[in-house]
Write a protein that binds this DNA or RNA. Structure first.
Length: 476
DNA sequence: AAAAAAT
């Protein structure tokens, strides 16, 4: 019996691997938003292939590179056995779901998946267990909660059963694609995107089983617009939960959504970082949670070379950035600014100098944002000038340089260490050496940089942008 | 200060 199912699994796996290069996101008939509608355009197909492949590569890698992670599990009921499954078969996933998992190139669960999925799925649906999980990006977090949702969902029931909240539009789209790919062998399963710009007619009802969205739209859809019946949601996922429940973040909306959910709804909180106060709040909001913390050596900071450039004002920062441009465009780069205004100014100035750059910030129209992030993913844009909207979660494989044109500071002007780590974490993963360059333009910002340096206890070296040899060196 | 709503 066991041998049989293994043989089948391996067969499926081989079949899946063969079909990997052939599948397209646009094949999906899911959802309110369709990634593509026609099949004729070979250009379009190629584009989608590349996007899918890049997402795939990232997920495959995150599924493999985690042998050194240390996991800490805190169980609500200390007497219950500590489950940790070593294979997807043991999770007893539905065959269609298992097929989806293998089609994505997953062989065995990552550490976070082993533990999180065991905790989430071993208990019967009547007694769902809540979970707070912390693990770095690139450890398979997304796949973990996507699998959790797909396992719990009942495809025959045509109403929303799983709800996932993302902090930004771009991240919601990215996560949505993972859901689509993993669940694509469930033909009757559908996904709805509750994001800005996705308009429904009055009185319409969402009958897709899974909803991914941003807080504002989801709240509207659940409350006054009544597109979603929140009373029948079985699984509620908060991605990047620390931003979602931080006082300055989306707390109010997330809590209001959460209050509309039924009492027995399973709640899953996932994040890479949990600051102390947020952690406490999370435990208050989520009753009796199991807790999983994945301890990872600060690999991020070991594989990312950090520099700073000393300037006197914004114009000098701009000049220094122009000097760096040639070096950073070897692969892809992200440039972070503190405000939307600075970002659009910088993008305009760089193009005036003849440098091709793309701009992405929250003031743009959603259609435009979707197009820009797509072009960046495809590599058609090498340099992306952006705000904190892209600080978290956005995974573009070829990004090897992150530039902090403005250092990350919170609303009080103090260094924002979490955001710093998230920003530079967009690069430097898995063998590829990453590079972070911080632009300092005053005594004040030098002070902030020093405090960031102290916080991570990692040397940030000075870089002279007039020294082209040095730039060549760091770029390679 | 950014993000997030059909406000």
């Amino acid at each position: 019996m066991a041998t049989d199912s293994w043989a089948l699994a391996v067969d499926e796996q081989e079949a899946a691997v063969k079909s990997v290069s052939g599948f397209r996101l646009g094949d999906s008939t899911w959802g309110v938003i369709k990634t593509s509608t026609t099949a004729e355009k070979t250009d379009e197909e190629e584009k989608e292939d590349r996007a899918a492949q890049s997402l795939l590569n990232k997920l495959i890698r995150s599924n493999l590179v985690d042998n050194t992670n240390q996991v800490e599990v805190l169980q609500r009921d200390p007497n219950s056995p500590l489950y940790s499954v070593k294979s997807f078969e043991e999770l007893r996933l539905k065959p269609q779901l298992l097929q989806g998992v293998y089609a994505m190139g997953f062989n065995r669960p990552s550490k976070i998946q082993e533990n999180a999925l065991s905790e989430i799925l071993v208990h019967p649906p009547e007694l769902p267990q809540n979970l707070i999980a912390q693990s770095q990006s690139g450890t398979g977090k997304t796949a973990a909660f996507v699998l959790a949702m797909l396992s719990r969902v009942e495809p025959a029931d045509r109403y929303p059963q799983c709800l996932c909240l993302s902090p930004t539009y771009e991240l919601a789209l990215q996560t949505g694609k993972v859901i689509e790919q993993m669940g694509k062998f469930h033909p009757e399963l559908k996904l709805a995107y509750a994001v800005r710009g996705n308009k429904l007619e009055r009185g319409q009802k969402i009958n897709e089983q899974i909803v991914i969205g941003t807080p504002g739209t989801v709240l509207d859809w659940c409350s006054k617009l009544r597109f979603i019946d929140p009373k029948r949601i079985k699984v509620f996922v908060l991605d990047e939960a620390d931003v979602m429940i931080a006082t300055q973040g989306h707390q109010d909306q997330s809590i209001r959504i959460q209050r509309m959910l039924p009492r027995n709804c399973q709640m899953l909180l996932f994040s890479a970082t949990f600051e102390d106060s947020v952690w406490k709040f999370a435990q208050k909001v989520v009753p009796d949670p199991n807790i999983i913390k994945l301890k990872r050596e600060e690999e991020t900071l070991d594989t990312i070379k950090q520099y700073y450039v000393l300037c006197n004002n914004r114009d000098e920062k701009f000049q220094a950035l122009c000097n760096l441009y040639g070096a950073i465009t070897i692969a892809q780069a992200m440039i972070f600014c503190h405000t939307r205004k600075t970002a659009s100014w910088l993008a305009a100035e760089l193009s005036k100098e003849g440098h091709q750059v793309a701009l992405l910030s929250g003031e743009m129209m959603v259609e435009q944002r979707a197009a820009v992030i797509e072009r960046f993913r495809e590599g058609k844009e090498k340099v992306l000038v952006t705000t904190n909207v892209c600080a978290r979660g956005i995974d573009v494989e070829q990004v090897s340089v992150v530039i902090n044109f403005d250092l990350p500071v919170d609303k009080d002007g103090n260094p924002d260490n979490e955001t710093y780590l998230h920003r530079i974490g967009r690069t430097g993963r898995f063998g590829k050496r990453g590079l972070a360059v911080n632009m300092v333009d005053s005594k004040h910002s030098m002070n902030i940089l020093n405090r960031i340096q102290e916080h991570f206890n990692k040397k940030i070296e000075r870089l002279d942008t007039d020294d082209l040899d040095e730039i060549e060196k760091i770029a390679n």
